[in-house]
Simulated assay, not measured.
Amino acid sequence: MSLSRQGSNAQYTRVDAQHHDDDDDEYENEARTEGTVDELVESDDPEHPANLIPELCRGFYTLGWVTGTGGGISIKKGNLVYLAPSGVQKERILPSHIFVLPYPQPSVVKAHTERTFLRKPKQEGLKESACTPLFWNAFDLRSAAACIHTHSQHAVMATLLWKGETFEISHQEMIKGIRLGGTGKTLSYLDTLVVPIIENTPHEEDLTDSMNEMMKKYPDAAGILVRRHGLYVWGPTWQGTKTQAECLDYLFEIGVKMKLMGLSVCPAKEGGL
């Protein structure tokens, strides 16, 4: 299924594709054949992405992940991508603030390029998140259903104490909450968790290519750390993405504490338990 804009009255019409998966079927059952673009974010279903994003952002705010309007989340459902806005207090986001984009776009949503939207908020001053092309990396390279970006201090501290291009930790129970590549099978207690680190840039969109390259270099990674900035993490569902974000944040926090205390963070490589 795809949606296309029609006319100046900002309407959309559903166009059925020749092939779609079960997720598409689920969404098509919810979608109207024709309606206003605001109907893309109007639903009584608490698990509709336009309702989930504000709820999740409120939770992330209390964790200190999205303070100062930074950070965000994007959820892909069927052939639609729902995107939290930029410049809004994350604990006060409403469904009416959500941007909706078609997926896939004709090409990867690259930095500083025009993007196709099915729905933009009516409120003045709202713009799409600068994280958009980085979220797209997760959708295109990992077939993810959601991507979360945090400004967690635990993530930032991990990038400061691990000077190389990866954060590594082993023999921690919470590693079992992480999936290979973010969407594959779960890791075991004995596995070494490896999270790549890329260097920060003055403008978020300029991280797109380095994130893309590091995801290809480390196909088993479930997230990407940005030095002095934060974390991008993705998953097969919004629930799985949230779970992995929580597990990774725990592992960054305990890893930092262990390193500062002089404890072995990665016994698999540092001479045993």
Rank of each mutant, 00 (worst) to 15 (best):
S2C: 01
Q6L: 10
Q6V: 14
G7M: 08
S8T: 10
R14V: 15
E26F: 05
Y27A: 04
E28A: 12
A31Q: 13
A31W: 13
T36L: 11
T36R: 11
D38C: 03
L40C: 06
L40A: 01
E47Y: 13
L52W: 08
L56N: 00
T62Q: 14
G64F: 03
G64C: 07
S74M: 06
S74A: 15
P85C: 09
G87A: 07
Q89C: 03
E91V: 01
L94G: 00
P106C: 07
V108W: 09
R115F: 09
T116H: 10
T116L: 14
R119F: 10
K120Q: 15
E124C: 01
E128Y: 12
F139V: 08
D140M: 10
D140Q: 12
R142Q: 07
R142C: 10
A144R: 09
A144W: 08
A144V: 09
A145T: 08
H149R: 09
Q153D: 11
H154E: 12
A155R: 02
T159C: 10
Q172I: 02
I175A: 07
K176Q: 15
K176V: 05
I178Y: 02
L180Y: 09
L180R: 15
T183Y: 03
S188V: 01
I198E: 04
E205R: 12
L207C: 07
S210N: 11
S210V: 15
M215R: 11
A222T: 13
A222L: 02
L225P: 01
L231D: 00
Y232F: 15
W238S: 09
T241N: 06
K242Q: 13
T243A: 11
A245K: 01
L248F: 12
Y250Q: 11
G255K: 02
K259N: 11
P267A: 06
P267K: 06
